[in-house]
Design a protein around this nucleic acid. Structure first.
Length: 263
DNA sequence: GCGACAG
DNA sequence: ATCTTGTCGC
């Protein structure tokens, strides 16, 4: 119900080499294919009854904001968690932990993982699926923050990033219509055979007029979800905005909780 | 040395 | 991530 692999939790005291080694291990322990109990169709059809007549799955969104001390330095990270079921918010929790290391591309989970795990511990409901702001398998060592958190908790997880960390789109992603999914393949910068589908560029929303254009989201498996399913779930959960609802709600809550704490 | 680089 | 008003377009 909590951390299934606390031994794999991000430790900011590790050396950079040790962090990267841990990520390689997590990459091999992660499952990049569907392995969950809920019915993914129950997400896009929240009002429809599930196969067993039970409640829709609990989908959680996670996002972070940062707090500044009196000296003007960012010294704490705030992780906000919003739990939804059938499109309704059923619980919101957050946690604040001190920042231990700076932002380093590829090592995000060692900077933001502690508050995330702390916030998830505060949740009374048990998540069926967690969506994170950042990459999952689209990562140099196939262990982005969504994968790291997913493996530690052993919960199905998906990474939703607004920009691409690594890998190469199979084709041009500009100005695509809503619903477009373009595979992101591994290249030399990624510890995976070239051509491996790491995730998808997903166009969750797009304008009608050619004047302006919305950039795609980069969706990748965290743990126990395949790339295709991850992309479809992101699309299904983006009901009104570019970001899937749980992530957008967590984004907003992270800001609200930060403000309510006096910045 | 040069370029790339989630949040 | 964060600093931030107006402004373009529907």
């Amino acid at each position: 119900m909590h951390d299934r692999r606390p031994d794999l939790a991000p430790d900011a005291d590790l050396s950079r080499g040790e962090m990267e080694a841990l990520q390689r291990e997590i990459g091999t322990l992660a499952t990049f294919e569907d392995d969950f109990a809920f019915d993914p169709d129950a997400l896009s059809n929240p009002l429809a009854s599930t196969a067993d007549g039970g409640k829709p799955p609990v989908v959680v969104g996670v996002d972070q904001s940062f707090l500044t001390n009196d000296a003007g330095d960012q010294d704490r990270a705030l992780s906000a968690v919003v739990a939804t079921r059938g499109g309704e918010v059923i619980e919101r929790v957050h946690a604040v932990t001190p920042l231990e290391i700076p932002y380093i591309p590829g090592l995000l989970s060692f900077r933001e993982g502690a508050p995330i795990l702390a916030a998830l511990e505060n949740l009374s409901v048990d998540p069926d699926l967690c969506l994170f702001d950042g990459s999952g398998r689209i990562h140099f060592r196939q262990a982005g923050i969504a994968t790291h958190m997913g493996v530690v908790r052993d919960v199905p997880s998906i990474g939703v990033a607004k920009s691409l960390l690594c890998g190469m789109p199979r084709e041009d992603t500009d100005d695509r219509p809503t619903g477009t999914k373009i595979p992101i393949e591994s290249n030399a910068r990624v510890d995976a055979p070239d051509g491996t589908v790491l995730g998808y560029a997903v166009q969750t929303r797009q304008y009608d007029s050619p004047n302006r254009s919305i950039n795609p989201l980069y969706v990748s498996p965290g743990h126990r979800v395949g790339p295709e399913t991850a992309a479809d779930i992101a699309l299904a959960l983006a009901s009104s905005y570019k970001l899937p609802d749980p992530v957008r709600l967590a984004d907003k809550y992270a800001d609200e909780a930060k403000t309510s704490l006096g910045k």
